[in-house]
Design a binder for these strands. Structure first.
Lengths: 187, 187
DNA sequence: CTAATTTTTTGATATAGGTCAAAAGATTTA
DNA sequence: TAAATCTTTTGACCTATATCAAAAAATTAG
């Protein structure tokens, strides 16, 4: 099972805890287009995506739809601040493909955090990994041209580059879709 | 003691653990200009800044000095990925003011993580807080004009806006110093 | 299979903010 | 306190990318 492997790749834990933890995750197949979370709602569940694609996004002041993050195979999907601080989310989340996911509720995960030091460590490590990815993206965006940003995406997340719609990728990279379309046609 | 208060604001822990934890932190007064970490070095220490200002930065391909993050009073200062994953840092860190700091070594913090579930939780919470700040900054930079980015800084980190040199602030916001200078003169 | 809708491409034009250069102001050093 | 160094400001000019508009292509729905 991929979820088991994922957890073990992050932290080494006793087989019994691993089994208990996996037991709290419930397998759910969700169709493309499913809205996982609405703006203003508190994120109650954390998902592991076994196979699929999703994104978090929001509408800015001008009403433009801006993609914040993509989630794909073998990764966790969650609105971090909303879930961990149990406060209303600034972002929405939706599935871009039919997906096989495993979900765990906040309360159940909290129980596991309380009960097992190693699960708490899992949480810490996962957060730090996310943080690292985020710093990478920030640097890519902060001082690079549109072309370089797209190169960064292809290099780091090649699957997303060809699975996600162009408009979503463009806003994720902080450029317009017209510009991204022109960059693609150049290559 | 400010460090104690900071820890307690993040996680509630038994007085005994709090005391032991604080005991591992060593008070160090460091002068302005101190290089805390060089590019390529592995970050061995995590700092709590009681009073002072620092930044992390790197030189990009064009040799331009780019500020990644500021650290100031009552916050932790660390090169996150380098410290927690004990790998060479992409960034340098330096003090921008004479500072009062408390340092703890990676090994000692690791000991505390191993020994106390609540310290592990402290680590998780701190990471998530950082993550939240980072997401905020990313959004500010991704789709806002130079003026709006500066407004974001003033709103969110007013102390930095007037304590850090203009050039560092500009690169932190992903704009040139000339542009920031013009924005300031408009206000 | 066709119509309706959504996504992507292409073209023309405008502009925010970059680059380069040099002056003015501040801070540090001896 | 003068010289040296570093930081900020100002000006002129230029370019990458945004915006607006409309056609073309792809996808979805009836």
């Amino acid at each position: 099972m991929k979820l088991e492997k994922f957890i073990q790749s992050v932290v080494d834990m006793p087989q019994s805890v691993l089994q208990e933890m996996c037991g709290y995750f419930k397998k759910v197949n969700l169709p493309k287009g499913t809205q996982i979370l609405e703006q203003g709602q508190t994120c109650k569940k954390l998902y592991f995506i076994e196979k699929g694609l999703a994104r978090s996004y929001y509408y800015n002041e001008k009403g433009k739809d801006v993609t914040v993050w993509f989630f794909s195979d073998n990764n966790l999907m969650v609105s971090v601040e909303s879930f961990f601080q149990q406060k209303p989310s600034l972002y929405q989340m939706e599935l871009l493909e039919n997906s096989i996911t495993y979900e765990i509720s906040y309360d159940n995960l909290q129980k596991l955090f309380d009960r097992y030091h190693c699960v708490e460590r899992f949480g810490r490590r996962v957060s730090i990994d996310l943080l690292t990815d985020l710093v990478d993206k920030l640097n890519a965006i902060q001082f690079q041209t549109a072309k370089e940003r797209y190169a960064f995406l292809i290099d780091k997340y090649p699957d997303i580059a060809y699975r996600a719609p162009l408009g979503h990728i463009a806003s994720y990279l902080g450029i317009t879709q017209e510009t991204l379309s022109r960059i693609r046609s150049e290559i």
